[in-house]
């Protein structure tokens, strides 16, 4: 496998979330994509798909976006899972490694969801401890992503943005800033997404933000007749999220940006078209940065 062209970090361009149904097409046609991101858990037991990913990796910069470290678990992070991730990191040499500000393991059981944390000093200690353990084991920095939330804890004492900023400061991790999640969480809490985004951009040190995520979501009605947005990654990025993305780029600068699409997965060409929309906004942000520099 030639690594010479892909050893560089993930570029500040628009990448695509690669899912298993697209492997064969990507291998056969090598479609244009600035970089790709995968969930490493999909390759830990599936050696056939891992063999395919190794071939794909030869032609594309790759990011590993984990969903199973359970960085928020009070019981700590599973050493066996860290070892599995480390094996993939050593094999694939990804430009970025990330997971979520959430938990999914309790009482020895893994729950396949990104469950929310109460934002307390205790939780901050736990997550910082766990992130440090993972970074030490991997020998590199990881990024931690803000999740979508559907409930808030009365015990929370720290605003989410400040919590993640403090985590980055304490543990040395970077931030994966998911703009769609900001929108979903804000609207579910009946908050103004633009104001919430401003809070995020004020709280975060732009230098710690290593990646941005964009995705579509679903709008459902609760039994009480209220609207609720579900982060299902099953649709186009909505116009409101594109607007928040533009404001994010203006304040944080151009960042590697990933288009995620998981449910009702469309043809790869649809993802490329969505990517082009992000690329045009990234180009504007780049021009703005050059103009400032000049």
């Amino acid at each position: 496998m030639s690594r010479s062209s892909i050893a560089a970090p993930i570029p500040a361009q628009a990448g695509i979330g690669l899912r298993l149904p697209h492997h064969a097409m990507v291998l056969a046609e090598r479609p244009a994509a600035a970089w790709l991101e995968v969930h490493p858990e999909n390759y830990m037991a599936d050696q056939h798909s891992l063999a395919e990913l190794e071939l794909i990796r030869a032609d594309y910069p790759l990011s590993l976006h984990a969903v199973g470290l359970s960085l928020g678990s009070a019981q700590g992070v599973d050493g066996a899972h860290i070892a599995r991730l480390r094996h993939l990191v050593e094999l694939l040499e990804p430009g970025l490694v990330s997971d979520h500000l959430s938990w999914s393991v309790a009482s020895g059981h893994y729950l396949p969801d990104l469950l929310p944390l109460p934002y307390t000093e205790e939780a901050l200690r736990v997550v910082a401890r766990n992130v440090s353990q993972v970074q030490e084991a991997l020998g590199r920095q990881i990024l931690v992503e803000n999740p979508s939330t559907y409930l808030c804890y009365a015990a929370s004492t720290i605003p989410e943005a400040e919590f993640l900023a403090a985590l980055a400061q304490r543990s040395g991790c970077g931030v994966l800033f998911d703009v769609n999640n900001v929108y979903v969480s804000a609207t579910n809490q009946r908050l103004d997404p633009a104001a919430v985004l401003e809070d995020w951009c004020r709280a975060l040190d732009a230098r710690t933000v290593g990646e941005i995520h964009l995705a579509g979501h679903a709008l459902v009605q609760t039994e009480a007749g209220d609207e609720l947005r579900i982060d299902d990654h099953g649709d186009h990025v909505c116009s409101e999220v594109w607007a928040l993305y533009e404001r994010s780029l203006a304040q944080l600068g151009p960042k590697p940006t990933l288009l995620e699409w998981d449910t009702r997965l469309p043809a790869f060409g649809v993802l490329q078209a969505e990517c082009a929309q992000a690329r045009s906004r990234l180009d504007i942000a780049q021009e703005r940065r050059y103009a400032r520099a000049v």
Partner: peptide
């Protein structure tokens, strides 16, 4: 899992896990 547990958070998480699987 070898890290010392944080009591309040651990209690919340085990309770929520039980509620989600019940």
């Amino acid at each position: 899992m070898h890290a010392p547990s944080e009591h309040a958070l651990e209690s919340l998480q085990s309770g929520m896990a039980a509620a989600l699987l019940a």
